[in-house]
């Protein structure tokens, strides 16, 4: 592999570059005033509830420092939950409590912590320790995802999530992100998580990459990655497609997890989704985006129609 790729090669591949993404898609299809809907998880959450989009149920929000004192009693009724900073990014400040042991809480890492530690964490969150730029924040407490056993052995610590790029309500490309030891349990590709490109017709693995190189086995567990296939694929795409009506943003990344009992759940939205998904898929976004732009909007008012269209149109070509 050469160290540099040429512009004609990128064109042939249909690669979407950052300038083009910013000017031609984010700039043109995402209205600035709508950005807060996705940058603030609490706003996203309330919006999803209004639109009946499946998402881990919101149990409680903590907005004021004085509310923290009484939080213990409210948490008693929950066996497992996740605490998230509303304006956090990159998974920082997320605590997952998987169960109780007497008075103690058990974190996903197995550590046992007391209610005091939770109070301190909430206080830090409200003070803006995890929010971008350190602005004061709100803590969200929501239901735990019980992640689907199909992923057992595919992810190191973190929950595997599925990123779907949705353009004008059409899911155009999807990728499964698997945390690894190298990425420190985070599903962040440039920190070493594995990106698995998924075929649009049935959610099968197309290709898997880590650190920009193709991998065949999960580096920590040794499980073959090409046998991955996502169940409920159509439901998942439908969920992502409906986020367009919900937010009004034309170009977004939706992050979806699969819950064992409740099926696909929307975790969060991103108004500036990354470009690495194209490498994981071995396919450029440009031809797909141009195809969607050429369609007549009025014909595709129904999310289900859009999903059926992409499942047909973007199915991998048999070679």
């Amino acid at each position: 592999m050469k160290r540099w790729v040429s512009v004609p090669q990128l064109r042939r591949f249909g690669m979407l570059g950052m300038n083009s993404r910013n000017v031609d898609f984010i700039g043109r299809y995402n209205e600035r005033r709508l950005f807060p809907l996705v940058d603030d998880k609490l706003k996203t959450k309330l919006l999803t509830q209004d639109h009946g989009i499946a998402t881990p149920a919101l149990r409680m929000t903590v907005t004021q420092q004085h509310e923290i004192r009484s939080v213990g009693a409210k948490l008693d009724s929950l066996s497992g939950f996740a605490i998230k900073p509303s304006k956090g990014s990159g998974g920082k400040g997320i605590w997952v409590i998987t169960g109780r042991d007497g008075d103690a809480y058990i974190k996903s890492s197995g550590a046992r912590i007391g209610i005091d530690a939770i109070r301190r964490h909430l206080s830090d969150t409200l003070a803006g320790l995890y929010s971008l730029g350190g602005t004061p924040d709100v803590a969200i407490i929501e239901d735990l995802i019980e992640f689907d056993p199909v992923f057992a052995g595919y992810s190191h610590e973190g929950v595997p999530d599925i990123r779907v790029i949705v353009f004008k309500g059409f899911p155009v490309m999807a990728m499964l992100r698997l945390a690894t030891h190298a990425s420190d349990g985070k599903a962040n590709l440039h920190q070493g998580a594995i990106g698995v490109g998924l075929a649009m017709d049935a959610g099968r693995c197309l290709k898997a990459v880590q650190f920009n190189r193709e991998v065949l086995l999960h580096p920590d567990t040794g499980k073959p990655l090409n046998s991955i296939r996502i169940d409920n694929w159509r439901d998942l795409l439908l969920l992502s497609a409906r986020c367009y009506e919900m937010t009004g943003l034309g170009y977004i990344g939706t992050d979806i997890v699969l819950d064992r009992t409740r099926g696909p759940q929307l975790l969060e939205l991103n108004a500036r989704p990354g470009l690495t998904i194209q490498i994981a898929n071995g396919l450029g976004l440009v031809p797909r985006l141009r195809h969607i732009e050429s369609l007549d909007d009025r014909r595709f008012r129904d999310p289900a129609e859009r999903v059926d269209h992409v499942m047909r149109e973007f199915a991998p070509r048999k070679s």
Partner: peptide, 22 residues
Amino acid sequence: MGQYTGFKLSELRRFRAIQEDI
């Protein structure tokens, strides 16, 4: 330049992995 939508020089390196695919 604000309307330039072509590739950045750094992207020619960042996306080098696609050479296998084309």
